[in-house]
């Protein structure tokens, strides 16, 4: 992609809603580390918001326990279009160490469509930032598709 194009898109700030669907916390603290001064993803205008209604991006950690399945689906539906789903951590992507458990419905892509996977158990904050960068581009693409389909701005 051209640099000019990247510069055009990147200043669009992503607002992220974080849903923990049964993770071990490892990924969650790395997400917290990502928003704090060392990694400081807020300098790109990205931040965690308190309601899915305000979010562009749904960030999911954890292998999705049976109890959380319905909640996750509801949260996904509440995020307005265009939206991007990022899964952070191996256990959301594949089940990881929890793969044979009786109380899981996951991994996440069994329940909702996923756009970006960030691997690692837990991934480093740098990897999470990379995932966010991919999400920005995807979101822009989805927005353009929606516009083409006739959605109003």
């Amino acid at each position: 992609m051209k640099l000019t194009r990247a510069l055009e898109i990147l200043p669009k700030s992503l607002w992220v809603f974080h849903c923990n669907s049964g993770s071990c916390n490892g990924c969650d603290i790395e997400i917290v580390a990502t928003i704090t001064p060392r990694y400081d993803i807020e300098r790109f205008g990205m931040k965690l918001v308190g309601s899915p209604r305000h979010a562009d991006v749904l960030l999911v950690t954890g292998p999705v326990t049976k109890y959380m399945t319905e909640r996750l689906r509801r949260i996904y539906e509440q995020v307005p279009d265009p939206k991007v789903v990022i899964v952070v951590g191996n256990c959301g992507a594949s089940g990881d160490v929890f793969y044979k458990s009786y109380s899981l419905d996951g991994p996440v892509d069994n329940i909702i469509p996923v756009d970006v996977y960030v691997h690692g158990c837990p991934p480093r904050p740098e990897a999470i930032i990379e995932g966010a960068a991919k999400a920005v581009l995807l979101l822009e693409k989805k927005r353009e598709e929606l516009l083409k389909a006739g959605a109003s701005r």
Partner: peptide
């Protein structure tokens, strides 16, 4: 109970060395 993952049950199909990594998580 919303994020009960059944870790203790899973351990019964793994040997102690494998359970270390489960215990960690």
């Amino acid at each position: 109970g919303s994020i009960h993952r059944g870790i203790e049950w899973m351990a019964r199909e793994r040997n102690p060395i494998q359970v270390i990594y489960l215990a960690e998580r």
